[in-house]
Design a protein around this nucleic acid. Structure first.
Lengths: 144, 144
DNA sequence: GACAAGCTACTACAAAAGTAGTAAATTCAG
DNA sequence: CTGAATTTACTACTTTTGTAGTAGCTTGTC
């Protein structure tokens, strides 16, 4: 396997990665333009962040088009998100319960959501051994 | 509204607050000693963080015992946690679903947890007969 | 009332994160 | 080939966060 390394991304770096995940791959300019306006700082700033991401091993250059490098993510959005969640969970004492409770209390989580989860969960449970990592397109989010 | 509750805490500051939340209130020394060993840096470091928390309005001095000040939290663990969750949720596009999915996928969330939630949630809403009255996003945001 | 012990106040500095400028290299159009 | 546009490489500065030292103020104790 490549590197199981847990790369830590800052908030801004996450934004960059988000843009890149959306693009699939792209040049600094493309990434820059992909950023939502309010978060779009100078082109060279983006460049700097990309370089740092490269240093961290979060992205890599895959080719050159014109005189510009094309970058590609080396980590998945999934794993990055997972990392953030784990970090948060730690603060909560490692248990998901309080987190859930918070979500529910603030109305971010409906009974409907829960029901949905309930029907999804057993699957994941039983397949925890199978090595088949088929990334079903959009099983999780398609509605709403 | 007493004050603006958009206090952002760093990781370390959260640790301090955590200690203080556990204590209810306490002196710098008590807070220092409450910290888990691995995170316990110099006494003066804790002091500095407490001062910054004071500046931010996250804690306040309530009295003096001997020549030491006793501090008390000004924000609840709840609200701090909520803030963190919201921040995370933002990265996830604002929806709790992907977050839940992650939790489930990584085994952090058991079917049991879900069932538990399920039985807790309806309380906040109401029973389970009427169709969808559940758009009550924030109807009852009591004290805050 | 002099002192040791403890606490606060103030200051400092390094590392991380955010932001961006400038010079040199590359490339494409003529 | 030449020059302009574009991109990269390198450097630099600011703010925030983590970390801690030191001087001086308080206090309880003889």
């Amino acid at each position: 396997m490549t590197q199981k390394k847990q790369i830590k991304l800052t908030k801004f770096e996450m934004e960059m990665m988000d843009a890149l995940w959306q693009l699939g791959s792209g040049s600094v300019r493309e990434i820059h333009e992909q950023l939502p306006l309010k978060k779009r700082s100078a082109y060279t700033t983006v460049q700097t962040i990309i370089r740092r991401l490269e240093d961290k091993g979060a992205v890599q250059r895959v080719k050159k088009i014109g005189n510009a490098f094309i970058f590609e993510p080396l980590i998945t959005r999934q794993s990055a998100h997972q990392r953030l969640i784990n970090e948060l969970l730690e603060l909560f004492g490692g248990s998901a319960r309080p987190l859930m409770a918070h979500l529910a209390e603030s109305g971010k989580l409906s009974l409907e959501d829960i029901r949905e989860m309930e029907s999804l969960l057993p699957e994941a449970d039983f397949e925890s051994d199978s090595k088949d990592t088929r990334k079903a397109r959009n099983t999780t989010s398609k509605r709403k």
